[in-house]
Simulated scan of single mutants.
Amino acid sequence: MVSLCSRPTSMTDAARHHYQKLYSPEPIDNDAIHQLLRVVPCATLNDPNIQSHLMAAFTLEDICLGARRVPHLSSPESTPGSFTPKKVLATLRVSDAYLLDCSPNRLRRRTHDEITTGRNSISHLFRALDSGKALITLFLYRALLPGVPVLSDAGSYLGSVDLTPFYDRFAINDTPLASCSTQAFRLQRQLPDIQSAIADTNYPSFSPQQWKSFWRARILPLARTIWWRVLHHKISCHANLHRILPDRFSSECEICTTALDTQEHFLLDCPAKWRVWQSVIQDCVLLPVHRTMIFDAIFSLVLPRWSLRRSWLSPIQLLTGILVGIWRAHWLSVFSNVPFSPTNFLYTYSLLTFRKEESLLSPPPA
C-alpha cells in the first residue's frame, strides 16, 4: 500500500530515502562488460595508447564535465527529457550525418559545413546523442570504433548472398527474367491455370470468334454476368445447391415440383419458363420456337439469325432480355414469395425490360 506524505518531516524522510537509493553504488554487471568487450576489436585493445587512455584515472574536471551531460532530476517525480526525432530524419541516410575518416579507419560526425542534407534534423540528433537522450545502435556503434573495416566492403557486416539461383528459377524459356517482357511473364504465371482449364471438361470451349462476339455484344452488364455464370455452370439451381448442401436443399424444381432442377431446367425446361420463351420470341420474331435453337444460343453461343421487324433489338439482345427477366422473376419468387406466373411475366417483365433495352441499345437517329 502506498501512503502519501502530509507532514514536512515525512516528506523530508521520503526524499532522503529516494536520493540515497538513487545514488547508491550498484554491483558491477559482468554481462554488460563482456558485451562491450565483444564489439571492441582485439587489435584495438592491444594498442598501448588506447590501453593507457582507458586505464587513465578520472579527474574532478572529467566528473564535472560528465555531470553536465546528465539530465537534471529536481524531484523524485521528475523524468528526463525525451528525444522526439523529426520526420525528415527517417528519409536521411547514415552517410548524410557521418563520414569515413581514413586515417583511423572509422566513421566520424560530419561538421556543420559538411552537412548538406537535413542539417537541422542531424544537428538535433547530435545534440540528443551528446545529452544522452538518444543512443546509437550496436551495429553503428561498432563502425564508430577505430581499427574496424567499415563501408569499404558490405560483406564485412552483412555477408554476401548469391541471388543467381533465385533469378534462374524464374527464367522463361531459358531467357533471363530481366530480359523477359511483362506479357511473357504473365503468360508463364497463368500457364498452369490455362492448362487446367483446357483439361476441365466443364470449362466452355468456344472459338475466339465466339468469345469475341460474347464480349463485344451490346447487352446489359447484368445479362452478361448471368450468361457468364451459365457458360461456366455456376448457376444456383437446386441440383447444384443439393450437391453442395444436401441436408438443406432438395434437387427438385420449386416451381413445377416434377423434375430435377438442373441448369437446363432452371432456364428452359421448366414448363412455366418455357412458356415465357415461346410467347416472347413468337411475338417478336413471328416464327415457331424450338428448344434446340434456344439451347444452342445460350449454352453454345450459336446465335439464331432472326429478323426482328417489330423491335430495334438484335437476336442476342432479345435472348438476354428474356434471360434477365426469368432470372429476376425466379429469385423474386424465392425471396419475396411472389409466384412465378408466365402471364404476369409477359405483361410486366417482358414489356418493361425490352422497352428499357430498346431505349439504351437502339441505334442513334440518322
Score class of each variant (00 low, 15 high):
residue 277 W to K: 03
residue 286 L to E: 13
residue 271 P to Q: 13
residue 156 S to G: 07
residue 251 S to N: 09
residue 335 F to T: 13
residue 325 G to W: 01
residue 260 L to W: 00
residue 320 T to K: 02
residue 357 E to C: 11
residue 234 K to R: 12
residue 135 L to C: 07
residue 340 F to Q: 02
residue 358 E to N: 05
residue 218 R to P: 01
residue 361 L to G: 05
residue 15 A to F: 05
residue 168 D to K: 15
residue 321 G to P: 04
residue 259 A to M: 09
residue 132 G to E: 03
residue 65 L to P: 00
residue 258 T to I: 08
residue 340 F to H: 05
residue 329 A to M: 11
residue 101 D to K: 07
residue 302 V to W: 00
residue 304 P to K: 06
residue 333 S to L: 03
residue 182 T to E: 05
residue 157 Y to F: 13
residue 54 L to A: 10
residue 325 G to F: 00
residue 79 T to S: 13
residue 202 N to E: 14
residue 139 F to D: 12
residue 295 F to Y: 11
residue 100 L to R: 14
residue 350 S to D: 07
residue 259 A to Q: 13
residue 214 F to D: 03
residue 237 C to Y: 02
residue 113 D to R: 11
residue 171 A to N: 11
residue 61 E to L: 09
residue 181 S to D: 08
residue 235 I to G: 00
residue 35 Q to A: 10
residue 20 Q to H: 15
residue 69 R to W: 00
residue 346 L to G: 01
residue 144 L to Y: 05
residue 11 M to F: 12
residue 67 A to D: 06
residue 241 L to D: 06
residue 167 Y to I: 08
residue 120 N to A: 15
residue 159 G to S: 02
residue 256 C to V: 11
residue 42 C to R: 11
residue 300 S to C: 13
residue 82 S to W: 01
residue 176 P to W: 00
residue 296 D to H: 14
residue 254 E to F: 10
residue 11 M to T: 10
residue 265 H to D: 00
residue 52 S to N: 15
residue 309 R to W: 10
